[in-house]
Design a binder for these strands. Structure first.
Lengths: 153, 153
DNA sequence: CCAATTTAGTTATATATCATATCTATTATG
DNA sequence: CATAATAGATATGATATATAACTAAATTGG
C-alpha cells in the first residue's frame, strides 16, 4: 500500500509572507500597478512607456545623439533604434546629421512632437495625481528621496 | 538659401528634469537597479525572478493550484505553464493530481526544491541588506507602507 | 439524469522587451 | 597612413506578456 499523499489540500488563501519581507517585492508589485495605469494613459497618444520616455527626453534635450539617449534611458543602443524609427516615422522627431560628426544623428523634435509631448506629459501628470491621491507631500518627497538613494547605490 | 539648422549641438549632459517630476519614473529607475542585482543574485541558483517567485510561493503554500499561483503572481495562466515546466523538470516541485478535482494539479515542493528555496531566500536577504544599506528601519517601513498604499489603490 | 456551461491546464501565437555579436561608415590616434 | 575607437544599424536569441482556442473534467439546471 503506497504511502498516503499526506493531505493534499489547496490553500484557501495564498500567502506571500516570505516575499513580503522584501522591499523589492513591494516595489515590483506597486510598479506593476503604476505601469498598467500609465500604459492606459499613454494609449490615446499611441505612445508606450519607452516611446514616451524617449520623446520627453528629446524635447528636453534637443540635438542629443542616440548614444546619449540610450545612456539616459539605460537601454542598449540597438534597442533604441526601433524606438527612434517609430518616432521618426510618425514625424514626431527628426534625425539630423551632425555636421561636425557625420556618424552621429542629432535628434530634434518636430512641432507635432513637441505638442504631443506636452499633451502626454499633462496626461501623465493627471494619471499620477489620480494614482497617488493617498500620498501627502511628505510621503511623496520621502519616497522620491529613498528611491533616489536606492538608484544611486 | 536654406534656413540655418539653428544651432545643432549635442547637449553635454542629458537632463531628465521633466521625468523627474514623476514618482513612477523614480520607481522604475530604482527598480531597475534592484532587479539587475536580484538577477545576479539568483544566477548561481539558476533561477530568474519569476521562477524564484513561483518556487517561494509553492514552498509557502504547498498544494496550491496553478490557477491560484498565477493569480498570486499576477500573471496569465498560459505564461505560468513554462515556469512550472521548468521547476518540475529540475525536480524542484511536483505536479500532483488532486483526487477531489482531477483537472487541477497540486504543486508540491520536493526536498531539493525546499532546500534551494531556503538558500535562494537567504541570498536575496543578503542582496537586499547590501542594496538597501543606506535605508534605516523607519525609511524602510515608510517605504513599504507607501508602496502598499499605491498597490492597493 | 443529461445537455450545456464552466473551470484547470495546455497549446499556439503574437508582441514587447532586452542583451550580444557583427557590420558600415566615420572619426580619432599613434 | 594604418589602426583603433565610435555612431548607428542589423541580425539574432532569450525573456516576458497577452489572447484565442483546445482537451479533460467538474458543475449546473432543466
Amino acid at each position: 500500500m503506497p504511502a498516503p499523499e499526506q493531505d493534499i489540500k489547496q490553500p484557501t488563501r495564498v500567502s506571500d509572507e516570505t516575499l513580503r519581507r522584501f522591499l523589492g517585492y513591494h516595489m515590483k508589485r506597486a510598479f506593476n500597478v503604476v505601469q498598467a495605469d500609465l500604459t492606459a494613459t499613454l494609449k490615446p497618444f499611441d505612445l508606450r512607456m519607452l516611446t514616451y520616455t524617449a520623446l520627453v527626453l528629446i524635447c528636453d534635450n534637443p540635438g542629443l545623439s542616440q548614444t546619449q539617449l540610450a545612456a539616459a534611458m539605460d537601454i542598449e543602443r540597438p534597442n533604441l533604434v526601433v524606438i527612434i524609427d517609430e518616432l521618426e516615422r510618425r514625424e514626431l522627431i527628426n534625425r539630423t546629421r551632425v555636421p561636425t560628426d557625420r556618424r552621429a544623428y542629432a535628434l530634434i523634435p518636430t512641432l507635432a512632437g513637441k505638442r504631443l509631448c506636452e499633451q502626454a506629459v499633462a496626461a501623465v501628470q493627471a494619471h499620477e495625481a489620480k494614482l497617488f491621491v493617498g500620498l501627502d507631500d511628505d510621503m511623496r518627497a520621502a519616497m522620491i528621496e529613498t528611491l533616489s538613494k536606492v538608484r544611486g547605490t
